[in-house]
Structures are given as structure tokens and as C-alpha cells.
Design a protein around this nucleic acid. Structure first.
Lengths: 217, 217
DNA sequence: CTCCGGGTCAACCATTTGGTTGATCCGGCG
DNA sequence: CGCCGGATCAACCAAATGGTTGACCCGGAG
């Protein structure tokens, strides 16, 4: 069997070195290239494709400091012709992350604290066109399907974002040109959907579920 | 010059592999041992000491899923006889993290997205008994000195952290074994120092100033 | 010793937020 | 057409939060 050629995408040199070292220990797997963010990954993919040296699997981190983030990058990659499968390898396991990645077309989702052997299995599965989910992730998804989270409306998300900046109900009302009463109504709905009963908890919960960005991010 | 012997402490196999690979590329540096958490690190240190094979520098992550966390581990290590310098290598750069680590006796603070050469320099500095701060961290500290942030007391930071998880005043009081009145007093002080006038704004401001971590991080 | 700052608490009051009920408007769907 | 859900608003009450004043204890600096 041919070598499985991999593109590593991670903004941490340390992690890239670790994956390179770990993967090169395995028979049949080799690291073809590396990239520090989504843009660079796309460039690398195209470059290698035109060289007639395409990669078989992309190993992608989700959080990348500066450039294009992992979910966006995954979606972009899946738009390419002859797009390689994208295997997500990240530290975060919020359901929002996972769902976003899967929606973007990821073919697997692993956590960085996984033992080497699990990562190897996932790479092999991805290369074979199969899906690979870390056990933790699989459990999370099952749970998600069992109790589906109520979806927030765009308006509610908008208010949630203003909420997170520290505005009062009145200030939010002014800024969105609605009455304070309406703001309160929305908030009550939001609390219900998030399973909390005050604004700070809503912010905390929404941030953890990655419905909104962390304040100041 | 003798080899600098290092103990790696990180709960992610991937990261350990990366550091091992990266460090072994450098002349004069070798990885003597690895540990997945603080407890294991202490055991390793003692074991190697009794073997007459002590390590020169500990490279320590701050966040470790299960076992003893990095700050605690650092403090414990510094209590040992002939304690080696501890160099923190982590993803997080909030004030609270940095201060806690320095207080615990860390001799350096690097970020995981640092280029290999910077990490190497930091290891050499630590081995020589010097302090090594990542440029980003140094800049952060300088900035803190330039615009004298009204210093929050440790107690205030602690309450701020609880605040950010969405707890009510009463819940915070219960959790910290103080009265609700005292919680309010602290909050008023916090609002004053941060220049805000409500709890959500305090969270937003404190997160942006990196006094605390974003909720859920 | 005295002073000061951090941490603790109480009492009080104004304002904000939380929670409920009910109502209107509008756009899409069967 | 009638129904439903999202968005809007009002009125009302209960509870939490914000803001102030004053007080006590303690440990460290002068």
C-alpha cells in the first residue's frame, strides 16, 4: 500500500513537531507539508496538487490565533476539486465546535489528548474515506441527538452579543431601537433555551457553547 | 558544556512528542523524562534525584486535565531540595495565570505558539538560573506597568472568576464562605477599579484586560 | 504605637433585572 | 383562509443587584 500523505495545519510549532514525530513513527504515513493557518493550508494544497503530489488527509486544528480558523478552512478545502478528507484534531470539545466542523465537511474529529494509536487509526480511517470520531466526541454527539438543544433565533443571538459587552437592558434597547420590555422578553426566551436564569450565566453558557465569541475576542 | 537535562510535563502526548522532537534537535539539550501531570512530575524528579541523575530544567504546562495543575506542581517542585528551575510553557496568557505561576516560583513563562528558537533560548536561560519571558508576556507586563491598572487584590480576582461563571451574589457568598454583604463590597471595589458599573461589564472588561480567562476557557 | 489597607459584615434604599400574563403585528405554511 | 412562531410592547410584582455609610479585625509599614 502507498504512503498516506498528510498536510498538518496548526499554528503551534510545538504541536506540529509533535504530530510530525508521532506520525513518522507509523508505517505507511508520512507528513507531506505543514501550514500555520487556513490560508497557508489552502496554498499548500493547491501547490502540491499542481505538482501532481496531492495529499491524502488534512490534519487540522480548529483554533488558530491569527489567520483563517479551522472551520472556515475546512469548508474552503472541501470546495476544492479532488478535496482530501479533513480530520479535525483539537483541544476543544464543545458541541458547537464539533457541529460546525462536521457541517463544514470534516470527516473526523479527534482530541489532542488522544493516545497516538487512536490518532493513527483516525488517520487511516480518514484516508479510507471513513469517518473517525474520538470516543468522547461520539458520546457527546449521541447526547446532543438525545436532547436537542433549542435553537436561538438570530435576534436572540444579537441581543446575547450585546449582553456580553456588559450593556444594561436599557442600553440594549436604545442600541437596537426596541423597548426595554422587548429586551426583557428576549432575555427570558434566551434564559429558557440556555437553561440558565440570569444574564451572567447566559454569557458564560453561550460562550462555552460557542454561540457567541468570548468578550473581547 | 554538559547536556541540559529536561523534564517535560504536559498531559498531551502530542505536545510532549513535539517538545521532545524539537528539543532533541538542539545541541546541548536532552529530554531526561516526561510526565503527564504534576504528581507524576514530582515522582520523576525524586526518582532521578535518587539515581544521581537530576534534571536541570522542568518544562511545565499549566493546564492539565486530570491530576495536579501546573501552578501547584511548580510550587511543590520549588519546595524540593536542589529544586530545578521551572519554565512554564502554556497556551494562556492572562494576568492571573502569569502572576500565579511567577508567585509559585516559575523562572520563566513561554507561550506554545513561540518559535522553536525562542523556546531554546528560554531553556538555556532557565538552566543558567536566569529569567525568561516570552516577548508577548514581557510586552504584557510592560504595558501593565505603563498604564497602571488599578491592582485588583487576589480576593477580588477570585470573586471576578466566580462572577464570570454566572453565579449570583448569594451563590458566590456560599462558595467562598463569606456573607452576601461582603460579596457586594468586593464587587463595588471591582467595579470602581475596572471603571464599570455592573457585573456583566466587569466580566467583559476583565476578560479583555486578560485579568481572567474568557468564560469556558 | 499608630496608621493604613485588605477583608469582613450590617443596614438601608434606589435601580435593575427576572418572571408572568396578555396583547398586537407580520410572514410563511398547510 | 386559519394557524403558528418570531418580534414587538405594556403592566405588574418579586427578587437581585448597585451604591452608600459605617463599623470591626488584623497584619504590616513607618
Amino acid at each position: 500500500m502507498n504512503q498516506i500523505r498528510i498536510l498538518l495545519v496548526d499554528d503551534h510549532p510545538v504541536v506540529r513537531a509533535g504530530l510530525r514525530a508521532m506520525l513518522s513513527d507509523f508505517e505507511g504515513i508520512s507528513v507531506a507539508a505543514e501550514a500555520a493557518d487556513g490560508d497557508a493550508a489552502l496554498r499548500e494544497l493547491k501547490r502540491l496538487q499542481t505538482l501532481g503530489d496531492p495529499v491524502d488527509v488534512v490534519l487540522m486544528d480548529l483554533q488558530m490565533g491569527a489567520g483563517m480558523d479551522g472551520v472556515t478552512a475546512t469548508a474552503q478545502i472541501r470546495l476544492l476539486e479532488a478535496a482530501p478528507p479533513v480530520l479535525i484534531l483539537t483541544t476543544y470539545d464543545t458541541d458547537a465546535d464539533i457541529l460546525a466542523a462536521v457541517e463544514a465537511g470534516a470527516s473526523g474529529y479527534m482530541l489532542k489528548d488522544a493516545p497516538p494509536e487512536q490518532i493513527r487509526q483516525a488517520v487511516l480511517a480518514a484516508a479510507a474515506g471513513q469517518t473517525a470520531l474520538a470516543p468522547k466526541i461520539a458520546a457527546l454527539l449521541m447526547n446532543r441527538i438525545a436532547n436537542p438543544a433549542p435553537a436561538l433565533t438570530p435576534r436572540e443571538i444579537q441581543l446575547l452579543e450585546l449582553l456580553a459587552t456588559g450593556l444594561s437592558n436599557r442600553a440594549i434597547a436604545k442600541k437596537t431601537f426596541i423597548s426595554e420590555a422587548t429586551v426583557k422578553t428576549h432575555l427570558v426566551h434566551i434564559y429558557g433555551k440556555l437553561g440558565v436564569d440570569n444574564r451572567t450565566a447566559a454569557i458564560s453558557e453561550a460562550t462555552q457553547r460557542r454561540i457567541i465569541r468570548a468578550p473581547g475576542q
